[in-house]
Design a binder for these strands. Structure first.
Lengths: 163, 163
DNA sequence: GCGAGTTGCTTGTGCCTACAACTAAGCGGG
DNA sequence: CCCGCTTAGTTGTAGGCACAAGCAACTCGC
């Protein structure tokens, strides 16, 4: 809205850019999810959760820390970890320092699963995004994404969002 | 994978761009959905469905055509239209030319609902995306999105993806 | 040390979506 | 005509996710 109460509509060129961008935002998650689901039986969120654990010291993180890294709510993460635990990819253990807390640890099977899934996932990212762009465009996309992230997540509580 | 079987990993700069872009793709749908849900009681998909109908001749489309415009599967659209029908925003009617087909029509209440929701939605798009970027970046984003779309939707069956 | 308030996590409930099976209607060859 | 195939749409089932309620454990002031 402008100060006189009328909305500020998008110009034609803005609208054209937005339309295409909105389509990408709508379609891309499905593409990433489908590939991982089909080839490795993991959702993209599963994969990302395992990846975060695989990079942590001792391959272990407290639930709260893992939720922050995956940009998830705690209830959501709790259920996902339960599922991964049933699959034997993650193990829960009580935290020694704070008995309220729970540690999630990547198991050996979990480590193998991440290693197995990574190449196909990276290939999908390349095929659908990186290799579709010129090197300059990749750089621009990074800068644009940073600018948008500043609006989406002003508190800046996400950091390691990765592939 | 490269031809020798080893995966082609991302370079540091590619990875940095991808990490940020992935975060945007993850967070943006939630932001758009939340605003519409909170202010208008609609999901983003609901809104988009109504918007597509509002632009169609007689504010009417066959289910299949509407599914194509919203980039949805027919089962998904069927349930969404059922919900919108219960809310009195859309009406179903049998199609005269093809008795297998069903027409979905925007009701007067539906028209009012779209008009009411549009300004707030556009404002959210502006705040979270357009106004975060320079005019040049908006143009770049459009070109980048087109390139990615070419990979995501080679058949090009989506067209009018809009705000 | 003890009671109020906070933090860490899990679980109940309900909505939304995908996948697949199902009904109904058009279409075409013999 | 009628039998098999295709197309249009709906619905059964299963599973993910959000929101809010619930429970357990920690902290801090008195």
């Amino acid at each position: 809205m402008t100060t006189d109460g009328t909305p500020r509509w998008l110009s034609d060129s803005e609208r054209a850019s937005w339309v295409r961008f909105a389509a990408v935002v709508e379609l891309l998650p499905g593409v990433l999810d489908s590939q991982l689901q089909r080839d490795d039986g993991l959702t993209h969120f599963d994969y990302f959760t395992l990846a975060m654990l695989s990079e942590a010291p001792d391959r272990t993180l407290r639930m709260t820390a893992l939720a922050a890294r995956t940009n998830a709510t705690l209830p959501r993460l709790s259920r996902v970890v339960s599922r991964l635990e049933e699959q034997g990819l993650v193990a829960r253990s009580p935290c020694a320092e704070d008995r309220r807390a729970t540690n999630a640890t990547l198991t050996a099977a979990g480590w193998i699963a991440v290693q197995a899934a990574a190449p196909g996932h990276v290939a999908t990212v390349r095929e659908s995004v990186i290799d579709a762009l010129t090197p300059d465009q990749v750089t621009q996309l990074g800068e644009i994404s940073s600018a948008i992230l500043g609006r989406l997540d002003p508190s800046g509580r996400l950091f390691a969002r990765e592939s």
